[in-house]
Design a protein around this nucleic acid. Structure first.
Length: 611
DNA sequence: GCCGTTTTCGGCCCGACTGTTTTCAGTCG
């Protein structure tokens, strides 16, 4: 997806350059928007733009919303030549280095142009120098205050803004949400934005609260212990930076606007723009305060999201789907897919114990899975011998572990030894990503631990444990943990070989990515999926928030091609079962249903469906 | 420059906040 980012960046920069030089005629304003919108569209594209072009050519590019003839041509030019002449020309004409400027917050192209024309500012360090020397305040329309604010923005930019992994910030976001909910005079409070859509990374968090006294709530929010700095404050809204560096916004509305505000604040932006266009076509106006009839300006909906969508003749759309990726058309026709629910999983097929790199015993992991997360089964998938770092198990140790698991299962069936351990180990789960709602059901006596392994796939695609041994286990997952830097052909062959192995049930974290850290190894996912389908091999969605592997694009592909999937926590500690929700969210974002995910089945049916 | 239940021209989502504006432009989400 490197090309997607490159192209999106160029399109945004074209928009920026055009805006910088825009004379105030309307045509160019909309031209600027077109380039920016096209940039967003490419950035949000779930598939690789090079693939689209190689398979469908120019027509494939034109199929992308917001991409028309002119921009499609420029994308084609970039894919085939590595350059866009139009962009090069604009850039050379301008003599301003916008590579830094275009990412600077609250200082836009118009302001930069003024600095250039007045002070010959060409890059960020010029601007910093001009501000430090007090030259900004001398420009008409600027002031010392503005100059100071610019200085601050530059410092902030230098620190670098990043997106946070959802699992990293989940506890903090929930904690603030709960506190807001409990504040006097607040009848509802909820974290919205990309957090509510459960994106794998979160840029900032947007809170919505219902209250008749917005000022009181805003002041309370500003005074929270997690607040580093208040960035802006108005009658209904406040923007601030938390001391972990993340920005948080709060919007306070009356209860009759809750639904429209929730819809507005949840986004995505693209989804909202599309929904507002539908409102407009019906003679309505949609904003955070409600749906209004343009004829008499009366509010006709707004207290609930359902009401807002209903008046636009749309079914209510799950937040995870709101990306303007076709969900609105389906909602119009009443044909939205049934998504897997957050309490649909019955088991977890990748769980580690302290026999290798886990931190707790098999019994402790099982106890947590059963009592705290309401699961009916887990597979203990410790690493195998070639993974020396984790003290991986050899053949004999795997067999011994499987025998021990049988004994534990017997004890569980007899209702043995769980109760007294419960309180000691599991009561300290606050501040984790564990929610109350994670506990969906509990108290079954039919809990089962499956003997299993996370077998290491060697450089040549063979496994480090004999099939003879693996066939004695209930479940076998295979994964790559070494030799990442192979060609795409070699890497794909490795995984295909593993999938073709009759003992391998599941390929764990198939692409090896670590979000924000590591791209993952190169593989031809289409080929792997073909083989997975032919051999009835399951592909995993590893729900650990730094992996979420398969990613959304591939899950979508798997769902479309009827490839069996499972969602596993990759738990190394009992609290990690809470990660399952991130995997479920990822599946929901890819429109997966319950039937696409095998570990929504009971243990017997699951085992019948494996190789 | 893009787009189509006002369909190949004439529109283009919408409002909050900031600064210094006494009515608005710039920026953001």
């Amino acid at each position: 997806m490197k090309k997607n980012i490159e192209i999106a960046t160029i399109l945004r920069k074209i928009g920026y350059l055009l805006e910088m030089n825009q004379e105030n005629d309307n045509n160019s304003i909309f031209k600027v928007r077109s380039y920016k919108r096209a940039g967003e569209a490419i950035a949000d594209l779930p598939s690789n733009i090079e693939d689209i072009y190689s398979k469908e050519g120019l027509a494939g590019l034109l199929n992308i919303h917001s991409i028309g003839k002119a921009i499609a041509g420029k994308i084609e030019e970039y894919i085939t030549t590595g350059k866009i002449q139009y962009f090069e020309k604009l850039r050379s004409e301008n003599n301003i280095n916008i590579d830094e400027f275009y990412r600077l917050e609250s200082i836009g192209p118009k302001t930069i142009k003024i600095f250039h024309d007045n002070l010959n500012v060409k890059n960020l360090s010029d601007l910093e120098k001009a501000a430090a020397e007090g030259k900004i305040r001398k420009i008409p329309g600027f002031s010392q205050k503005k100059e100071e604010s610019i200085m601050k923005k530059i410092q902030l930019f230098k620190k670098g803004r990043e997106r946070y992994l959802i699992g990293e910030v989940y506890p903090l976001i929930k904690q603030i949400e709960e506190r807001l909910s409990g504040f006097e005079g607040v009848s509802k409070a909820i974290a919205t934005g990309s957090f509510r859509r459960m994106k794998e990374t979160i840029g900032d968090v947007d809170y919505l609260a219902v209250s008749d006294d917005p000022k009181k709530v805003i002041d309370y929010f500003a005074a929270m212990p997690e607040v580093d700095e208040v960035l802006g404050k108005g009658q209904h809204k406040i923007f601030l930076r938390l001391n972990n560096g993340m920005d948080a916004d709060l919007l306070v509305v009356p209860k009759e606007s809750f639904g429209s505000a929730l819809q507005y604040f949840t986004g995505s932006k693209q989804h909202n723009v599309a929904v507002r266009k539908i409102a407009l076509a019906k003679g309505f106006r949609l904003n955070e305060w409600g749906v209004f009839d343009n004829n008499d300006n009366n509010r006709i909906a707004g207290s609930s999201e359902e009401e807002v969508y209903r008046i636009l003749e749309l079914d209510w759309i799950h937040p995870e789907m709101r990306e303007n990726m076709g969900e609105i058309e389906l909602a119009k026709k009443g044909k939205l897919p049934q998504l897997i629910q957050y309490n649909d999983l019955k088991g977890d097929l990748q769980v580690h114990s302290n026999n290798t790199d886990g931190t707790m015993s098999i019994e402790d992991m099982a106890l947590a899975a059963k009592e705290k997360f309401g699961l009916e089964y887990i597979a203990i998938t410790d690493h195998t011998k070639s993974l020396k770092l984790t003290n991986g198990l050899d053949e004999q140790e795997l067999i011994d572990q499987a025998n021990k698991i049988k004994e534990i299962n017997d004890k569980i069936r007899q209702g043995f030894y769980y109760k007294e351990k419960e309180d000691n180990n599991l009561n300290n789960m606050q501040n984790s990503v564990h929610d109350k709602q994670d506990i969906t059901k509990s108290g079954q006596n039919n809990f089962q631990i499956l003997s299993a392994a996370e077998v290491n796939i060697m450089k040549d695609g063979s496994l480090d444990i004999s099939n003879n041994t693996l066939d004695k286990l209930d479940v076998v997952g295979a994964a790559i943990h070494s030799n990442f830097a192979q060609t795409i052909e070699v890497q794909t062959d490795r995984l295909i070989k593993a999938a073709q192995n009759p003992s391998v049930d599941i390929i764990f974290h198939p692409t090896g990515r670590l979000i924000n850290k590591r791209e993952g190894y190169q593989i031809n996912v289409d080929k792997l999926m073909e083989v997975a389908k032919d051999t009835n091999t399951v592909l995993e969605i590893d729900a650990h928030y730094d992996r979420l592997d398969l990613k959304e694009e591939y899950i979508r592909k798997a769902v479309q091609n009827d490839i069996n999937l499972v969602i596993d926590s990759d738990a190394h500690h009992p609290v990690h079962f809470a990660f399952l929700k991130f995997g479920i969210a990822q599946a929901r974002r890819a429109w997966a249903g319950k039937s696409d995910i095998l570990n929504t089945l009971s243990v017997d049916r699951l085992l019948n469906n494996l190789k």
